[in-house]
């Protein structure tokens, strides 16, 4: 098997920002522009980061400080940015990100890259709201270039619809809000307060049920916990310290709401978590 194509980063910054009435790439969070923020976040995960722009944006100072990929096809919109990147380096894959995802985290990118299937045209998250593919936080593989060209030549331009009917690997979201995009001044204000309020992670009510050794070590069959733990892994770390659990996490499985779960799944308020120590039926 040959190695998977190298991944480059592409931040889409060619949008018109109509509803915001202000250039989204220039919105500032904690003293940093969204564009700089997105580039910084992606950089450690890819070989190099480029910013996708329209031809009339190449001299914009905010954009010009980054390596640029200029739209090489007509039509506009994200599809042209993605096609232009794929055409500029036809053997590479592209981690494509919209420029209006201020709540995106390192963990979300890492999870996507780990879930990547280079044999698909793209690897993308499903939306936490409607389950549809999120084309603008996705890894686009080299083979997508030709398929996107065909798609556009048929008069279509929506990359989400493209991913729905082509071979794409879809990944469940790990964090329900990480891909919330910012379209209006009100949404910008909310995102800013989330990001700029120091250490105010949303706390949730999680129920934990204990069995066997875990029940004995916790000294109870269940408990309700007000916690900021974002994942079962973080929850186990928090409770392990409190109850002095002896088993390392690697030896356990975990269930959320009555079904086996990934340790990195995003927890929501009201979830019921069970840590499953090594089993011994039979």
């Amino acid at each position: 098997m040959s190695a998977a194509p190298t991944v480059y980063g592409l931040i889409l910054a060619g949008g018109a920002s109509t509803r915001m009435r202000h250039d989204k790439a220039a919105l500032r969070y904690g003293g940093e522009s969204q564009l700089d923020r997105a580039c910084r976040l992606v950089k450690p995960h890819v070989a190099e980061v480029f910013v996708s722009v329209r031809a009339d944006q190449v001299n914009d100072p905010l954009r010009a400080s980054h390596p640029l990929i200029v739209d090489a096809f007509a039509g506009g919109g994200p599809i042209v940015g993605i096609r232009s990147a794929l055409a500029s380096s036809p053997a590479s894959a592209w981690l494509v990100l919209a420029c209006d995802l201020p709540l995106l985290t390192d963990a979300v990118l890492e999870h996507l890259l780990r879930a990547r299937d280079p044999a698909a045209l793209a690897t993308a998250y499903c939306s936490a709201y409607d389950g549809l593919p999120e084309p603008l936080c996705a890894i686009w593989e080299p083979a997508a270039g030709e398929a996107l060209a065909r798609w556009q030549s048929e008069g279509r331009s929506c990359p989400r619809k493209f991913l729905r009917i082509h071979h794409a690997k879809l990944v469940d979201p790990v964090d329900a809000h990480a891909l919330d995009n910012i379209n209006t001044p009100e949404e910008y204000a909310t995102a800013r307060s989330t990001l700029e309020t120091p250490s105010a992670p949303e706390s949730m009510q999680i129920k934990i049920q204990y069995y066997a050794l875990m029940r004995e070590q916790a000294g109870r069959s269940d408990e309700m916990l007000e916690t900021a733990a974002a994942t079962p892994a973080e929850l186990y770390r928090e409770l392990g310290e409190r109850h002095r659990f002896t088993l390392p996490r690697e030896r356990l499985k975990v269930a959320v709401n009555g079904e086996f779960s990934d340790w990195s799944r995003g927890l929501r308020s009201g979830d019921v978590v069970v840590f499953i120590p090594p089993v011994a039926g039979g």
């Binding site: 069995y211 066997a212 050794l213 499985k253 269930a255 069970v274 499953i276 120590p277 089993v279 011994a280 039926g281 039979g282």
Partner: peptide, 11 residues
């Protein structure tokens, strides 16, 4: 498979 996968514990 039952011995390996089903969450049953034995004291």
């Amino acid at each position: 498979e039952v011995k390996h996968r089903v969450p049953i514990w034995k004291k």
